[in-house]
Structures are given as C-alpha cells and as structure tokens.
Design a protein around this nucleic acid. Structure first.
Lengths: 226, 226
DNA sequence: TACAAACTAGGTATAAACCCCTGATTTTAA
DNA sequence: TTAAAATCAGGGGTTTATACCTAGTTTGTA
C-alpha cells in the first residue's frame, strides 16, 4: 500500500515537530519535508524528486505567507492537495484560501484525530471540511450577493508613493512633516492621503492606520501589560 | 525516582497535543493537565490535589493571558516553576515575564530537545535561559538606566470612559459622533481624548489607534491579500 | 467625612485634516 | 506609440482635531 507523502509548512519549529510526531504514528503517512515558510516550500518543490500528496500549510509566515504559496503551488502543481492549518477563523481567510486552491481548512484548535481524518479524506476525495468550517462557508454563500463589488475595490492597489505616505501617517507625522521627509509639497501629500482614504474606504487616519496594520505595512507588537 | 509533573497552557489544542507527545516520550516527565488559558489554569490549581512542578505557559490566550496568569500563580504557588513558551521574541515580553515570576523563556521556534533540556534545568536549578534569550536579556541590562521612568508613566491607566472613547476613535468616529453615542457633550469627549493623548504619549489619532491595538482594546484581523 | 480621582462641560484659538476642483509632467503598460 | 496610471502641485473652502484654560458634580475610598 502506497503511503501518503506529506509536507508541513509552519514557521514554528516546535509546532512542526509536534505535528510530525502525531503524523509519524500513522503507518499510512510519510512526512517527507518540513518548511519554515512559503518560499522554502516553493524552492523545495522546484528541485525535489519526490513530491508530496498533501501539504499542511500555515497562513502567517515570514518571507512568503500561506496564501501566496498556495496560489503558486496550485498553478505549478495542481495535483498536490493543500490543507490550510492555522488559528485564523475569520470568514475571509477561509474563503480566500479556498479561492486560491486550498482543498481544506483546519483550525489549529482541533484534535490530532481530526488532522489525520482530514488528510485521509482530502487524499481520497479531494476535499474535506469539518462542521465548524462548513458552517462559516455556508453563512458566506448566503450573504455573497453584494460581495464581489467590494473585492473589486480592494484590487485597486496602493502605489509606492501612497504606501510611503501611509507609513508616515501611521507614525503620527502631519501632512507638513511628511512633505518635508519625502521632499514634496504638502499639497501632494494631501493628494496621496485623499487617494488613500478613497482606496481603503476609510473616513480618517484611524481607518488608514488599521488598514496599514492589516496589510502589515506597519509592524506592531502586542502589549500584555494591561 | 520522582517524575516531574508538568502542566501545558496554550489556546491551540493541536499545539498542546504535539507538545504533550514530545514530553510523554520522556520517562521522567508526567503531564498532569492541559489548560486552554490562564483562567482555566488558575481554576485547576485552586482545586487540584496534585500540583505541577513546572508549567509551560503561552503568552497570547483568550480570557486570561500568560503574564496575568504568571503574576497570580507566582504569588499563590511560589514553588511552581513557570516557563514562558511563546513566539514573541521582543525584549519587553521577556523582561516582563521574568519580572512577574517566570523561571525561563522559550521561543516556539525551538527544538523538542531544548524544551526537554529547559524543563530539566528549571526543575533542578530553578532557572534556565538559552543563548538567544540570554543575549536579549544582556542587551537589556546594559541599557536599563532610564527605563524605570517610562514604565511609571505606563502605569497611568486609562479610565473606563477613556477606553469607551478610545474604542470609538479607533472605529473612525468623530468627536461629535462619539458624543452622541455616549450621550455626553462633544467637549467632554474632547477632554477624554486629550487625556488619552497625554496618557498614551501620542501625537494624534494614529498614535491612539496603535495604542488601542497593542493593548487589545480593539480587535484587528490581519489580511494576507497584498 | 474628607480627599483624590474621574466625569462632566464650557470659552477661545490655532493647527491640521478633509473636500472639491484643476492641471502639468513622468512612468508604465497595452 | 498612445492611452492610462502615477506623481506632482496649486486655489479655495469646511470640518475636525489639538491646545490651553477653568470649574462644577459625582464616585470611590482611606
């Protein structure tokens, strides 16, 4: 009987080690590689002789995140099944991952048994979703009539200069100060900021800051001292 | 030979399971409990007959985070050794955890062997830090002359009303709108906002939004579609 | 009960942000 | 090579935020 070849992609080594032990106990599984991020995975696939059947993919990773990696691999290796394995349970994460080619979506807050079951189901039938995720998908289908327009607006990406300005806005600089730093007229900065407000659909700087953080244009460290 | 009793505290079940398997392979370890968050751990300790020798503690958890939990347990059960096990590698996280009573600080991006080694060292000698963490602590000691003043300023906590206002500011509402929502004069809102700017040492709303996110007063979901 | 803090709210000003408009130059891509 | 997008920059205006004041009322607590 052929074993199922598996690759684990996650930036935390300890998590990879743990999952690997869980999977190694199953006779039908064969973990052939661990990658720290999407880039490492793509490089591995470009030069390996032995290909995985299933990839367990985290979302948040340095260098290249899970969405980008899935997008690439789904094009270059459409036969490889990708299971998203992450702690993000938002609708948009799930639908995005499925959109770019994921065959399943597992929350890290799940049981080892469920991971094993999902891998087998995805290998056999091509896809699998547990009840929790199915419910989220179901709710999304119901309210998906007006959604397309929104995602089109999202596709209006920010230009280089707009990102420069956004970064400085997030660092609490005023229009005049930003103009000085970038060696342009404050009116130009205003223009860029207006475009930012339009493109990000924000009302004011508060919205811009949140947008910047979401898109990881600004790094932010949480603070546990309340 | 007495086994080392261990408790694992992490909000991801899969991570807990993985770590548990790694620890169960060692004969001298005995994992007696897994908790999803600080609250569950504190409740367990208040009614258990069998106490852990060592606790592996995550930082970011719902209900009660690792810093708060460590603070409480270090007071009520000073004999229990607490090892921070997290992916946050910032100086302030490390020094904060040590400050509230942690005996060691491990990054999740470590090896299973190192986890085993750290548990043994902490159990035998009372503390242990690997080279990477030691380096960060060392750098912090060198530049710790003017730090105390800063943390004093941080202790000026926000009042309930200020937090109300801050939340609405982060949701892009204007002063007038916030006044309507909270049934107070816009002038009062202004007063609160001025206090917020002082207390958080911000220049404008951008600073307030970042502060709110850091303190987790506002939830923010990352976006992987760049 | 008395004091400190928090909450409330007003006056008066200036600075900055936000809105709507126009138009020139450069870069990029079809 | 031509059209579209990005970048730059200005006029003129309204709205909002920020700064520096004062001060009454409520609330928690020593």
């Amino acid at each position: 009987m052929k074993k199922i070849n598996i690759v684990i992609v996650d930036d935390e080594q300890l998590f990879r080690s743990g999952i690997r032990f869980l999977l190694d106990r199953e006779q039908e599984f064969n973990v052939i590689f661990e990658a720290e991020n999407g880039k490492e995975l793509v490089e591995f696939l470009s030069k390996t002789e032995e290909f995985p059947d299933v990839i367990l993919m985290d979302l948040k990773m340095p260098e290249m995140n899970g969405v980008e990696a899935t997008k690439i691999i789904h094009k270059t290796h459409p036969d490889i099944k990708i299971i998203a394995l992450t702690s993000y349970d938002g609708k948009s994460f799930i639908t995005n991952m499925i959109d770019v080619g994921a065959s399943s979506y597992l929350l890290k807050n799940t049981t080892p048994k469920m991971v094993v079951h999902t891998i087998n189901e995805v290998y056999d039938k091509g896809f699998y979703y547990d009840e929790k995720v199915l419910k989220i998908i179901h709710e999304n289908i119901i309210s998906s009539s007006g959604k397309r327009i929104k995602s089109d607006l999202d596709k209006k990406l920010l230009s280089k200069r707009e990102i420069d300005v956004l970064e400085l806005i997030c660092e609490q600089y005023t229009t005049a100060e930003i103009g000085e730093k970038l060696f342009i007229s404050p009116r130009t900065v205003e223009g860029h900021r207006n475009n930012l407000l339009l493109k990000t659909q924000s009302k004011n700087v508060a919205g811009l800051v949140i947008y910047g953080i979401q898109k990881k244009l600004i790094e932010i460290t949480p603070d546990f001292n309340i």
